[in-house]
């Protein structure tokens, strides 16, 4: 699995949403999006749900780690850094 890292902690709204959507759109099935953010990006998760992508949201020390993949049988728990 190839990791596409998006560290959005320093980015201003709505740039994280813009970038993550465009990454998500172009991502192939061998890749997964690894987003790091200050806030839980609910709209992004809703879209992932709607598209039936696998996703994982983890809050560690007040930093959100969001993993999204188009693969349905994938264990994202193994890929999260925290």
């Amino acid at each position: 699995m190839k990791k596409i890292l998006l560290d959005a902690r320093e980015m201003e709204h709505p740039i994280p949403l813009q970038l993550s959507l465009s990454y998500l759109q172009s991502m192939s099935s061998g890749e997964f999006l690894y987003m790091i953010h200050r806030k839980n990006p609910i709209p992004l998760i809703e879209i992932a749900k709607e598209k039936k992508y696998s996703y994982l949201v983890k809050n560690h020390n007040d930093i959100w780690h969001i993993l999204i993949s188009k693969e349905s049988d994938i264990n994202l728990e193994d890929l999260v850094d925290v």
Binding site: E10, M11, E12, H13, R38, D62
Partner: peptide, 15 residues
């Protein structure tokens, strides 16, 4: 609590 950090990229509020 939501938008100050989100819009303006500031340090977090104390927990």
């Amino acid at each position: 609590f939501q938008v100050i950090e989100m819009f303006f990229v500031t340090p977090k509020y104390p927990t």
